[in-house]
Design a protein around this nucleic acid. Structure first.
Lengths: 254, 254
DNA sequence: CATATAAAGTCACAAAATGTCACATCACTC
DNA sequence: GAGTGATGTGACATTTTGTGACTTTATATG
């Protein structure tokens, strides 16, 4: 009998926590066909390393019941805020900008909230709500089916609306950056939508904090010649670094 | 049996309170498929930590009895809440409903937050955000230019998106009801959009609390044969009453 | 204003799920 | 074959949840 390696369990647990925010002992035991006691030992191990927090029935990422808007936002909030401020510094009065959904881009939106004479197009509900409460910022919401996880619109309607707009700057997120330097996403639809967002901008910037480096998500976002830079909080290392260096766009450190 | 993690409930409650302003015991119990007693224990726990304030029937964020921003700004919150509940009672599981922007309709959305198997189409950012956080409710946002006052989309894009959808029930607000019993609005665009909303429903209901009676706003919303009722908190008097009585649709008292 | 009534809250106890610990088992190494 | 480390098993403790009786609160009604 080939027993799955323990290291795979631990990796899966950490990955699942980044995505979902919490894992349960029972679900993991089923998933790996091991006893709950084994899963508890795994979680205990990760807990001793300070990488997860144990709760009754499972574990959560970070501090349990942190009063943050979303887990992803709580993850590396400092780095994401820095990226947001850096991206905002590229925006000048009178510009029309497109802002993708995501926790990093929400920081960008907040950094833009003090501006005047700006037009912002977004598919994110929180970003639209934040900016429409700002005087001087004209906000356009891209409609469509709302994905609960992202609190943002994705779908046929969104894609179609996107074709109606052309903007000065587009700021787009990604699910991950592969070893080859490709940007990747969780679904075909999201990847296509982000590609269209890149295409909609005279210049397009990708936003990615270091937790995205070397993370593999299944679908590649098709590259775009509009791409004008990748804004990060740390310089990527290893394969991603060399791959990125071969591309035409610069890496901008926030 | 694998129990869903309790910590996720607590997080969800805190999360919902940050934007929603309040949660109800019954709705939470339904959503997580646990007993009300369990939800009460959750709220008690959070209350002991000073993170929520208990009120009869649920909990609110921070200071007790302080309604959410949009609701606090709403005049006649009691009447509008009653209208919202009444409208919600017309909605059955599995239906597709269209909800207009507005303070009254926001109460309707909150009343629907405990439902399952529902599809909601709306042009309002707060309504979309509230409902997309509800499991079992599929939310579709009508995009377009955001009007800051309404925190909702209006415009060419919104009108065009509206033509793509057909719903079981449409719930529409109005700026006022004229002496002649016509529904009126503040702008030509809004009036046209609300007319299209009425047309999009197999049945359409107008929602209006008594502060709208005999209020004149400049543009008439073209009437629609889909119109199936006017939901109010008080029966209108005077001219509006007689005018309304001549129409085909009933007046529904919340 | 008092009363009726439905909804919500409280409490105590039982049931179910989870956690802990000691020990058995298995595969693998030396 | 003894040692080592990871895993499974079962008894028992602990935590969480459900249930029902009862009390309290909100709301409508006369």
């Amino acid at each position: 009998m080939n027993r799955p390696l323990a290291i795979d369990r631990l990796n899966h647990i950490l990955h699942a926590l980044e995505e979902g925010g919490s894992v349960s002992v029972g679900a993991l035991a089923d998933r790996f066909a091991v006893s709950k006691e084994t899963i508890r030992r795994d979680l205990k191990l990760l807990s001793d390393q300070g990488r997860v927090s144990l709760v009754h029935g499972g574990a959560t990422a970070g501090i349990p019941a942190e009063p943050s808007l979303s887990r992803r936002e709580a993850n590396n909030a400092t780095g994401k805020a820095a990226i947001g401020r850096k991206a905002a510094s590229l925006v000048r009065d009178g510009m029309v900008v497109l802002i993708d959904s995501g926790s990093t881009t929400l920081f960008l939106a907040e950094a833009l909230a003090s501006r005047e004479h700006l037009t912002v197009i977004t598919n994110s509900l929180p970003i639209a709500l934040t900016l429409c409460r700002t005087q001087g910022v004209k906000t356009i919401m891209l409609g469509g089916e709302i994905h609960a996880n992202d609190e943002a619109a994705f779908g046929v309607d969104t894609l179609q609306l996107l074709t109606h707009y052309h903007v000065d700057l587009a700021f787009v997120g990604a699910g991950g950056i592969s070893e080859d330097g490709d940007f990747t996403d969780y679904s075909r639809l999201a990847a296509e939508q982000r590609h269209l967002m890149l295409e909609a901008g005279r210049k397009a910037f990708m936003l990615a904090d270091h937790t995205k480096f070397d993370r593999k998500t299944p679908v590649i976002i098709p590259p775009s010649p509009r791409m004008a830079g990748l804004i990060v909080d740390h310089l990527p290392e290893g394969l991603a670094a060399t791959a990125a260096a071969q591309r035409r766009w610069p890496i901008i450190l926030a």
